[in-house]
Write a protein that binds this DNA or RNA. Structure first.
Lengths: 191, 191
DNA sequence: CGTCTATTTGAATGTACTCAAAAGCGGTGG
DNA sequence: CCACCGCTTTTGAGTACATTCAAATAGACG
């Protein structure tokens, strides 16, 4: 199985590349194998990579002043992950990214990202659609956080992301839902 | 003051258009004046327009099954507003959009949006950046909703959007923050 | 096997909501 | 111009949802 097959297939859903463009693009990617429970980005460090997840599972989170963790997102195969704001604006990261499982990723540096968009403007379209989907997904999350109580949010989460729900700890789910692990445990007992 | 001056200036921050391209683009826009407290999009109706706000103030919100309103966003001059998911996917709207003040907007239909992106691919870049900013803003909102209590969210809101805070009712702010108007009133008394 | 972390359980507490009623405020018609 | 109407805001009591803290139990991993 060629390592770039999956990423090219994902891109082909939105834009059509010539063979040369495909090669140029894959030439900008750096393949990495990362063991379970490894932090690949820490708060305060430069966030220079956008990671396409080829296999495995990762999580991004932030810490508040009291040390409380909030999970920003989980990412499985075929998702893209970074601290988007800091990647795009070349700011020190405000978040942490860690592997949940042994994972393989294809990294696109910010330098190569800019280069790619200049060299093959079609990629503007691809990333426009990527950002669009991320935006609408995140907007829905905002609204659900405001309108639903913890139990309803939990139910939606496990229905929407059954595979994630199976692979992460309850503590991590709680931190995604914005509740304490104790309260999530209480919710689960009730059901 | 030419009606298209502001929108072209906003676009010029991200992409450079020729005079002909500018004319082509503005030719796709429909100028509308909308009085205060007018609903321009209602849930269940086709969401065919992306509105650039030339002047005034608007609000998008949704209703849950109990009739509770949640404000999705406020939008002032130089913002873009629609039910993005439904606009892009040509689905019936899940939200309402109404004017808070007398407003003027420039509407871009979904048909013209698609046409624009085909005719002038540079606009892919513009909308990529627009979506990018919307995404990172919305992600920050999600996290703040999870980590901050109502009082902290209120304080951040009035600091971040002082002009909006001055122009909308407390009830509307409460529905943006995901709290009841009664509780917002209580918070304000304390400070 | 031992250690470390995740999960469960329960009591006490805090945050935010519901419901009801009163007060304030803005727009409209007489 | 003012009185009335409808909506917003305030206030308070009672309640529900969710947290904190502490301690016990269960699981994962070397």
């Amino acid at each position: 199985m060629e390592i770039h097959h999956a990423i090219l297939k994902t891109i082909a859903k939105h834009i059509t590349l010539t063979r040369e463009e495909e090669d140029f693009f894959t030439g900008l990617l750096v393949y990495k194998e990362i063991p379970k429970k490894t932090t690949l980005l820490a708060e305060g460090h430069p966030c220079t990579q956008l990671s396409y997840i080829h296999s495995g599972a990762l999580r991004s989170y932030c810490l508040d002043e009291k040390g409380k963790e909030s999970t920003i997102m989980f990412a499985m195969s075929d998702w893209w992950l970074t601290d988007m704001y800091c990647y795009l604006n070349e700011q020190p990261s405000m978040t942490f990214i860690e592997t949940i499982e042994d994972s393989t990723v294809l990294n696109l540096s910010k330098f190569n990202f800019d280069h790619l968009l200049t060299a093959i403007p079609k990629f503007e379209r691809f990333f426009r659609i990527l950002m669009q989907n991320a935006y609408t997904r995140e907007q829905l999350r905002s609204i659900e956080n405001l309108t639903l109580n913890a139990e309803e949010r939990y139910t939606r989460f496990i229905n929407k992301y059954p595979q994630i729900a199976r692979n992460v700890t309850q503590k991590q789910i709680a931190s995604y839902l914005g509740i304490t692990p104790e309260f999530l445990s209480f919710i689960r007992k009730k059901r």
